[in-house]
């Protein structure tokens, strides 16, 4: 496995783990409190807004740790720049990632039309965000492995 393949695999698994742990905390807090509809909106909005900087910080820490481990185990320095292939793969991954998010966004709006709880829309939005991140990471992994 090349540096990029390992990096995107670690990123994907890291995002998944972070989201699972975060969901567990959020659901615990949600079950502990009783919310009226306004408080419920505030709770889920805060849950999404906190997840964004948390996932960015986790990604930075994960990248630093991964680079340290990669240098120690593979005895090779990580590439210091992105070349044309990296940029092309990045663009394709971003496109797929956007498709995944738009699909999740539309489904979350659809849930409101089908008279689902407003909190369901927020949960679906959160899932769409993580799903789009995973689609991006695994698209990159796939393209680095298979080529194009």
């Amino acid at each position: 496995m090349s540096y990029q393949e390992k990096k995107h695999l670690v990123n994907g698994i890291g995002s998944l783990l972070l989201f699972a742990v975060y969901c567990w905390f959020v659901l615990q807090r949600h079950e502990a409190g009783s919310f009226d509809s306004t408080a419920s909106f505030r709770f889920w909005a805060a849950a999404i807004l906190i997840l964004i900087p948390l996932s960015i910080a986790a990604k930075i820490i994960l990248t630093i740790l991964f680079n340290i481990v990669y240098r120690m185990t593979d005895r090779e320095k990580e590439p210091s720049f992105s070349d044309e292939r990296d940029k092309l793969i990045g663009l394709k991954a971003t496109r797929n990632s956007h498709y995944a998010f738009v699909l999740g966004f539309l489904l979350s709006l659809g849930s409101l039309i089908l008279n689902a709880e407003p909190s369901a829309m927020f949960v679906m939005l959160m899932f769409a965000g993580v799903a789009s991140e995973l689609v991006g990471a695994f698209t990159q992994l796939y393209l680095y492995r298979k080529g194009f």
Binding site: S2, Y3, Q4, P79, F81, D83, E84, R85, D86, Y144, K146, G147, F148
Partner: peptide, 22 residues
């Protein structure tokens, strides 16, 4: 040529068709 070693590996394996410039 100003790319990463991984890109040369991919080109050699036929997994990536480089740009005309590269």
């Amino acid at each position: 040529v100003g790319v990463t070693r991984q890109t040369i590996v991919a080109i050699e394996k036929g997994n990536y068709s480089p740009s005309l410039e590269l």
